[in-house]
Design a protein around this nucleic acid. Structure first.
Length: 354
DNA sequence: TATCCACCGGAATTTATGGAAG
DNA sequence: CTTCCATAAATTCCGGTGGATA
């Protein structure tokens, strides 16, 4: 049933981006420097999660790299520091700079070494505002910026005025796909990733509708439906397989997020999951009691309460747990009980009355 | 209602780690 | 090898906040 799983990866992109022609054209003509300019124009790509902002940038720029020799690189800004972002850009055009190179030296060598036009894609760029990276990159004459953010106005409002002005007239707003559009996008993946005819066009349209035009969720749901069908011994994907696919797909997305985090996050996540819903206060107490056992024989040491709250904030940001109330009213709960830590933490309650 | 107390999260500070220079 | 100094992670400090208590 499943012929090629890689087709469903985030990094896979088809030969031609469907229903994004206008966006591809606009981005292409902006990024290519004209004869008079030292760099391409800056572009701001905005839109809700899962509609293909990053895919648009990656697809268009790698095509321009092939066709027009455009130099480009992409930087994931989430959780990055100023130095981290600049170091990524430097690594893309030459040797990776030493980890302890001073911030200012990094900015300096960036100005020296980028001597031909370079397009820098800043992904998840909301986070870039916590740093000075934007100013440093904007300082380099040959660098043009392709910013990927959720809300264009919000992002521009937080950017320094001189930099916001550079995006004037160069904005691409992507919206959720329509049902037909998203079904069109799923179709080639079914054609190459699955064996023939196991999923009908009607089923694709139904999936497209149910995921409300969010491409990533739709793509994972197709794979999940096929997997469920295999498990259940079906020869083709049935309605019941599709019914159950959405939750599985969402679970995969969350599981991947949890897997990418460190031990501390896993300990806290498991404590919340085991409790169902737990107050901030009780969570700190539980952590205190289990900490000795859990960290026994591991590299890491238990965290202070403040640091625990930092890790919890990260778990919320990653859509793994939910946080309600302020101050002493605070409570936490997990969003999907089926998502579990791969660590063997032995965090389970010994005393059910607690 | 007034007051108290413990949690929350921002900011400042300390600690851990590792590459480079002497 | 030792010293120096950079970043990132963790801790300390503290004013703000809201439930609990009288």
């Amino acid at each position: 049933m499943i012929a090629d799983r890689s087709v469903f990866d985030d990094t896979w992109s088809p030969d031609h981006l469907l229903h994004r022609d206008a966006a591809v054209d606009q981005l292409s003509s902006a990024v290519v420097p004209s004869r008079l300019q030292r760099r391409g124009q800056d572009v701001l790509i905005s839109g809700p999660p899962g509609v293909g902002k990053s895919v648009l940038a990656r697809h268009t720029l790698s095509q321009l790299a092939d066709d027009a020799g455009i130099q480009w690189t992409r930087v994931e800004c989430m959780g990055q520091t100023t130095a981290g972002i600049i170091r990524e850009v430097l690594a893309a055009i030459g040797p990776r700079p030493a980890r302890n190179t001073p911030r200012e030296d990094l900015a300096l060598s960036l100005r020296e070494r980028v001597d031909e036009p370079l397009a820098v894609v800043l992904d998840e760029a909301a986070e870039v505002h916590d740093t000075k990276a934007l100013e440093r990159l904007a300082d380099v004459e040959a660098i043009s910026l392709v910013v990927v953010a959720y809300d264009a106005d919000d992002w521009l409002a937080q950017a320094p005025r001189s930099i916001a002005a550079r995006f004037h007239g160069q904005r691409i707003a992507l919206d959720r796909y329509g049902v037909d559009e998203l079904a069109d996008i799923l179709e080639p993946r079914v054609a190459t990733g699955l064996e023939r005819q196991v999923l009908s066009r009607q089923q694709l349209e139904r999936i497209a509708d149910d995921v409300a035009g969010v491409a990533r969720h739709g793509i994972y749901s197709v794979l999940a439906a096929a997997e469920l069908a295999v498990d259940r011994g079906h020869y083709t994907v049935r309605e019941m397989d599709v019914d159950d696919a959405y939750d599985v797909a969402r679970e995969w997305m969350r599981q991947a997020a949890l897997d990418s985090l460190a031990l501390h996050h896993h300990v806290l996540y498991e404590l919340v999951r085991e409790a169902g819903t737990i107050s901030g206060e009780a969570l700190h107490r539980r952590y205190e009691t289990v900490a000795d056992g859990v960290y026994q024989g591991r590299q890491r040491q238990p965290l202070s309460e403040r640091s625990q709250r930092r890790k919890l904030a990260k778990l919320v940001e990653y859509d793994l747990i939910e946080r309600e109330g302020a101050s002493r009213d605070r409570s936490y709960s997990v969003l999907d009980e089926a998502v579990r830590s791969a660590y063997d933490l032995g965090v389970a309650v010994e005393d059910p009355d607690m």
